[in-house]
Design a protein around this nucleic acid. Structure first.
Lengths: 140, 140
DNA sequence: AGAAATTTGTCCGTATGTATC
DNA sequence: AGATACATACGGACAAATTTC
């Protein structure tokens, strides 16, 4: 990626894009910015470049970075666009069967089931939670 | 030690080794990977490098990481297909939110949620139970 | 029920080498 | 040559979720 910066350095363009999302509400006030690692992936930029971009936002006072926690969008400037992006997040884990599930599967209560959970969000709001339970493959 | 580039960066080599162990079964499906601290010691690499390696496995869909818990090997590796569902049965009802769901939705424990349940059977055996929770439309 | 230990998440600072503008 | 960006790697520190005692 040789970079074709049209007059502007990359970190400035990235800062512009993040500022746009914040102003448009797609990154809600008071929420945490995606971590540097995510931004690195999304913008296909190095961490240093991302950090420069965030430093700009900090200077402008619209972001606050806390060591070990993340970068938070400032809370001021009320009301604007409702967020529309749908975010999916999947969690996979093993859970013990409760009475209801045990009855359906025909297994003992407390037996291990594999649960896949998908949380669908629109902006900050949770739209739905879908859980799929299966019996584990060849193991308790 | 910047890069000892013997063709590949270290995090990729480490990811290769972990993938090999998973496919060979020496790290079983559904089990937890050794913690980052152990891998750091074993591979004599920094934590960041280990995390990069694990991120690769996550991206490939063969590992799922949960905060505070660990990194779990997927129950099904991409490419191996779980058995297909045949019989489907749907149940719709209203249920009170337990603590976990309440936390996800950001509502009070006991608040009403709508639950759609689909039981997939293959012959007599239950293959999977899928439950989707949503907030009621305009209701309590 | 609560504290401690474990484990992952994130940020900070630094370093080296390479490629591109 | 210098500025910018990229890729990789290290170590330290604090934050937060989960498990364990």
């Amino acid at each position: 990626m040789p970079t074709s910066h049209y007059g502007q350095p990359r970190y400035r363009l990235i800062a512009d894009e993040l500022r746009r999302r914040i102003e448009a509400g797609s990154i809600p006030r008071g929420s945490l910015l995606p971590p540097e690692s995510s931004l690195t992936a999304e913008f296909n930029a190095s961490r240093g470049t991302i950090r420069q971009a965030i430093a700009l936002l900090r200077h402008e006072g619209i972001a606050i970075t806390e060591h070990g926690r993340g970068t938070q969008v400032a809370a001021f400037l009320p009301g604007e666009e409702p967020p529309r992006s749908i975010d999916l997040e999947r969690i996979h884990r093993e859970v013990p069967a409760d009475a209801e599930l045990a009855a359906i599967f025909g297994i003992n209560i407390g037996a291990t089931l594999v649960r896949d959970e998908a949380v669908a969000r629109e902006g900050a709001e949770v739209e739905s939670v879908t859980r799929t339970y299966r019996r584990p493959r060849g193991g308790p």
